[in-house]
């Protein structure tokens, strides 16, 4: 599996984190340190762009929910966008589409944050 590339883009009041590759127990710690860094910097509004995400392990998904939950405690959120059908199926099977906010694209997530 392809190592996950993680890129962060800072917007005015939120951050977009772009994933490219596979998120497993090997690559997740790097995303974790990116998300921890945002939280430590009081940046709780995050959009996770999954357009390049090829695989996600169930443990990684569990950890993402943990981040979303803590972001919400600070009036923020972690929103997932651009999920491939394969990734969406994994999320849906676990019922996590009811816990995580999922949007079709970045603009939809931005609009939701703007409300």
């Amino acid at each position: 599996m392809r190592e996950c590339e993680i890129k962060r883009e800072e917007r005015d009041n939120l951050d977009i984190v772009r994933l490219d590759g596979a998120l497993d127990s090997h690559s997740f710690p790097r995303l974790e340190s990116t998300l921890n860094g945002l939280r430590d910097g009081q940046r709780h509004r995050v959009i996770l762009d999954c357009s390049g995400l090829e695989y996600i392990s169930s443990a990684s998904l569990g950890a993402l929910i943990g981040f979303a939950r803590r972001a919400r405690e600070h009036q923020g959120d972690l929103r997932l966008v651009n999920l491939s059908p394969k990734i969406y199926n994994i999320v849906e099977l676990l019922g996590f589409h009811k816990i995580l906010e999922i949007h079709g694209n970045i603009d939809e997530a931005l609009a939701k944050f703007g409300e």
């Binding site: 099977l93 676990l94 019922g95 996590f96 009811k98 816990i99």
Partner: peptide, 28 residues
């Protein structure tokens, strides 16, 4: 949040998925 079970009925031998909604334990 688990894989949906499969039912093969004896009368038509078709695989049928049994669906119901729910989230994995420990998350909500």
């Amino acid at each position: 949040g688990h894989e949906r079970p499969i039912l093969v009925q004896s009368h038509d031998k078709h695989c049928q998925i049994i669906d119901s909604a729910g989230v994995a334990l420990g998350m909500a």
